[in-house]
Design a protein around this nucleic acid. Structure first.
Lengths: 209, 209
DNA sequence: TTACAAACCAAGCGCTTGCTTGGTAAAGTG
DNA sequence: CACTTTACCAAGCAAGCGCTTGGTTTGTAA
C-alpha cells in the first residue's frame, strides 16, 4: 500500500485523538489499549490477566485501574475506538468512490485492512471477544455496529443495482462478513497476496463480471 | 430436511458410537459432552466453570473428573468427536454425488448443517474456542482438521475444473470457510431461508453460472 | 519554588477457580 | 451369591483472579 495512504491513516488517528473521539496511541492509556488488544487477540480476553497486561506495558497490575475502572472497560474501549476509527475511514472512502462497484471495493479493502493491518488486533477482539462484555456494554457496542452495517448494506445494494444483479443483500453481506473477518486467521500480511488483490477476489464473490 | 436424512444422521452416530469412535450421546459421558458444548458455545470456554457444567447435568462439580481428567479434556473431546462425525458424513456424500458441482454443494450443505444443526454447538466451539486448548491438544486437533480440509480442497478443485473456472483454491476455500462458519452468528434455523437455499447461495459465491 | 494533578508502586484482600480426596450406592457379571 | 466396575457425593485445598488501598514519584505550569 502506498506511503501516502498509510500517512492518511495516521493523520486520521491524530485528528480523531485531538477531537477526543479516540485515545492518543502515544499516551500511557493508548499504549495500554494497544498492548491489551494484542494480548486479548493472542490469548483471548478471559485467559489474559490484568497482570499480563501490566507486565506487557511495564507497570504494576494495580496501576491499570488508574486508567480503567475495570478489566472489561478496557475491552469496551478497544471495541468502541476501532469502530469509530474505521467508520470515519469508510465514510470518506465511499464518498470519494466514482462508481458503486468501487465504493464496495473500497469498503472490502478497508475491512480487510482493518482486520489485517494496524487495527488488526482490535478488530479481531471486536469480532471474537464479543461475549466477554457485560450485557449493557454489548448493547452499547451493538449500537455502533448498526451504523457500520447500515453503510455496508447501502453500498452493497447500490453496487448490485449498478451491475444489474438481484440478490438478498442481508444474506450476501453476512456471508461476506464471515469471509472477510475469517482472513484474520490465515492471511499473511507479508505473503505474496496483497490486500488489494485479496479484496478483488472477495469482490468477485459478490459482483459477477 | 427430509425425515430419512435426519434418520441417516442418527444412524451414523449410533454406528460410530458402537465402533467407539464417538461417545454415545445417551450415556452419562455423552450427555455431559452435549451440555458442556452448549455452555461453551453460549458463554465461551473460559467463562464456563466446571460448576456450571455440573449444575447443567445435575451432578456435583467434582464428579466431572470421574469422566474427564481435566476441563480441557472435555473441550478436546467435543472437538475431536465433531470432526470425526462430520468427516464420515462428508466422505459418504462426496462418494454419492453425481457431479463435481453437486459434490461441492453437498459439502457446503453438510458444513452448514454441521454448524447450524445438531452438532452446531460443537462446531461453534471447534471454530471459536481454539486457543483455549493446550498446545499439544491444538496440534492433535489440527491433524484431524488437515484431513477435513484436504477433502474440501480436492472437491473444490474438481468442481472448478468441471465449470471451466480457474481460481486459487487455497484462497477460495478460506473465504468460503469464513462465510459458512460465520452463519452460526446470524442464521435462524426456524427462519424462512432453508439450509439448502442458503447452500445454493454459498455455492454461487464459488461457482458462477 | 511551590502547588497540584496525573501516573504509578507495594502489598494484599476476598473470592472463584480447577481439581483432589476418601468414601458410598447401585448396576453389571461370573 | 460375592465381586468388580461405574457413577457419583461432600468437603475442601492451593492457586490465581480482579480489584482496592494508601502512599510515592513524576511531569507541568505559575
Amino acid at each position: 500500500m502506498a506511503i501516502q495512504v498509510e500517512q492518511a491513516k495516521l493523520d486520521l488517528v491524530e485528528s480523531l485523538a485531538a477531537q477526543g473521539l479516540v485515545t492518543d496511541p502515544l499516551s500511557a492509556k493508548g499504549r495500554l489499549l494497544a498492548k491489551a488488544a494484542k494480548l486479548f487477540r493472542a490469548k483471548g480476553y478471559e485467559r489474559t490477566t490484568v497482570r499480563d497486561i501490566a507486565a506487557e506495558v511495564g507497570i504494576q497490575s494495580g496501576s491499570i485501574f488508574h486508567h480503567f475502572k475495570s478489566k472489561d472497560e478496557i475491552l469496551k474501549a478497544i471495541m468502541e475506538e476501532v469502530i469509530v476509527y474505521n467508520m470515519h475511514r469508510m465514510r470518506k472512502l465511499v464518498d470519494e468512490a466514482d462508481t458503486a462497484r468501487n465504493a464496495l471495493l473500497a469498503l472490502i479493502c478497508c475491512e480487510l485492512d482493518a482486520v489485517n493491518g494496524l487495527t488488526g488486533n482490535a478488530m479481531s477482539v471486536l469480532v471474537y471477544e464479543w461475549r466477554s462484555l457485560s450485557e449493557d456494554k454489548q448493547r452499547f457496542i451493538l449500537g455502533l455496529r448498526a451504523e457500520y452495517e447500515a453503510l455496508w448494506s447501502e453500498t452493497m445494494q447500490y453496487a448490485l443495482d449498478e451491475a444489474d444483479q438481484t440478490a438478498d443483500v442481508f444474506v450476501l453481506r453476512r456471508l461476506l462478513t464471515g469471509a472477510l473477518s475469517w482472513t484474520t486467521t490465515w492471511y499473511d500480511t507479508n505473503g505474496k497476496l496483497s490486500i488489494n488483490e485479496l479484496a478483488e477476489e472477495a469482490l468477485k464473490l459478490v459482483i459477477k463480471e
